[in-house]
Amino acid sequence: MNIFRLAGDMTHLMSVLVLLLKIHTIKSCAGISLKTQELYALVFAARYLDIFTHYYSLYNTVMKLIFLGSSFSILWYMKRHKVVRRSYDKDQDTFRHHFLVLPCLVLALLINEKFTFKEVMWTFSIYLEAVAILPQLVLLQRTRNVDNLTGQYVFLLGAYRGLYIINWIYRYFAEPTYSTHWITWISGLLQTLLYADFFYYYINSVKNNVRLQLPA
């Protein structure tokens, strides 16, 4: 475990807590894409299949439980909670995210490190996480006005991915047994690039202290 990895996990944890805080305190999920949240829940479900079979560390297991618990409780809030679900704008959140799931599954069946159920599901979760933010970014473009918490949520998600890339670079040089992991590296890099333009507009809006406006 290195500082970049820990910072990445903490940033990721912050992003889900910011989202839960927003939904729980102001009882609204305006501007949040349910499709992205569904994809994230699927990412965690497919990636953490080994949670009960392989014990790495207490930290690892606790964080997996937190990410699983938070992503499914966000789904519950947005779909079941009588007040919160009324603020979900399904007319705007129209990204056909089913079209993302199947290609990722097919790709995981074709390109993986080992053709076993768990390895294919893990690889599927890596590919799916790379594109999971798309419905949310499309929704932000549509709703144009991005409220602070939503902006912070997406920013923290992008920062977590960026820190993971630095973590991989650090591990490559620091750990002698560390070998190449092209699937994870390329997928993680593409995922982080998706945030690039959002970062540009977000940082500008923070610098100029104006509301975040994404170009149409």
Partner: peptide
Amino acid sequence: PSHSSLKDEL
């Protein structure tokens, strides 16, 4: 295993 794995990551 000889090579490290990324399964210890989240």
